[in-house]
């Protein structure tokens, strides 16, 4: 009973403080709008960029505001294949968000489980796992993702593996740190002496209390997964050309950038940056609010 009373209050307190920061609030709003737009892309976009039949080559590389063969205005112009850029960006956001959330989600689940299990079991197992994680963290995430993506080849699932592989270690370390602190607390000992099963204690007691730092890491990691995906796709080791993510759109417009047809690269890039920045600003605010050392 007490639990159900205190939990929403902690949540609303958090929200009340969050609302006091206009920049963070705006960022959260932007993220929400982008997610809704990406989900509703098939309804909002004037054109289906996957439908090759609807592409007209005569409409290729037209500037923003051009009225094409389809009879509607290309408000952001068209790319080198005559795709409506606004539509392509909406679908690109869909792919980018999907990659970021799926990879981040899997990394979160693996990290939370491995980290808290290591902290719960302790001993040699904990030492061994954390040594491995430290080793992996000493390699930069971009290198990890790049190597794995290069080894596995192009493709959606390959890229998710690459992104997850480059990110799960951050979650393991964070979960381990938080869970190790929880493990030593009296209520965990009490729960174990009732006795409750180890699995139950880990999932019901240790993990929920280790959640706040994990959420902070998750926001940062989803943003970095989206950025990594775009980078890898730009370099040609990410998604195949049939999955036009934001990174692919940018790389497709790169050669035209130099000849003054700026819109093909600039608008997808702007969408990418707004998305990543908004997530990072939200994550920053959440971290500041959850960091007890900054509380005066």
């Amino acid at each position: 009973m007490t639990l159900s009373l205190t939990k929403p209050r902690a949540g609303s307190e958090f929200w009340a403080e969050f609302r006091g920061h206009p920049a963070a609030l705006t960022a959260a709003f932007v993220v929400a709008v982008i997610i809704v737009l990406a989900i509703l892309a098939p309804l909002v976009a004037p054109q289906d960029p996957y439908d090759l039949a609807s592409l007209v080559l005569r409409d290729a590389r037209r500037p923003p505001g051009y009225v094409g063969m389809g009879g509607y205005t290309h408000i952001l112009g068209t790319d080198s294949q005559g795709r409506d850029l606004f539509s392509a960006i909406l679908y690109g956001l869909r792919i980018s968000l999907q990659m970021g959330l799926v990879a981040g989600g899997i990394a979160f689940a693996i990290g939370a489980l491995v980290g808290s299990t290591a902290a719960y079991v302790g001993g040699r197992f904990e030492a061994f796992v954390m040594r491995l994680i430290d080793l992996q963290l000493s390699f930069p995430a971009i290198l990890m993702a790049f190597v794995v993506a290069a080894l596995l080849g192009q493709g959606k699932s390959q890229l998710i593996v690459a992104l997850t592989f480059s990110q799960y270690a951050y979650f393991v370390r964070t979960a381990h740190g938080a869970a190790a602190a929880e493990r030593r607390k009296d209520y965990v000992e009490a729960a174990l002496s009732i006795p409750m099963s180890g699995w139950f204690v880990v999932t019901r007691h240790i993990l929920p209390n280790a959640l706040p730092p994990l959420i902070v890491v998750a926001t940062v990691q989803v943003a970095s997964a989206i950025s990594l995906e775009a980078t890898l796709s730009f370099l040609g080791v990410g998604l195949p050309p049939t999955e036009p993510s934001l990174g692919m759109l940018i790389s497709g417009g790169f050669q035209y950038l130099l000849s003054g047809r700026y819109w093909i690269s600039i608008y997808p890039g702007a969408a990418l940056i707004v998305l990543i920045m908004a997530i990072n600003i939200v994550g920053d605010q959440v971290r500041d609010q959850l960091n007890p050392r900054l509380k005066k």
């Binding site: 950025s227 940018i250 950038l257 690269s265 990418l272 990543i276 990072n280």
Partner: peptide, 28 residues
């Protein structure tokens, strides 16, 4: 935050556009 958020490849593209193409004071 900008430096963290904006992917390196994007900043590179913008640098080429601004300094090498538009202003033309730097090699691409």
């Amino acid at each position: 935050i900008l430096g963290f958020s904006v992917p390196t490849f994007w900043i590179g593209l913008m640098m080429i556009v601004v300094f090498a193409v538009e202003i033309g004071i730097m090699p691409a």
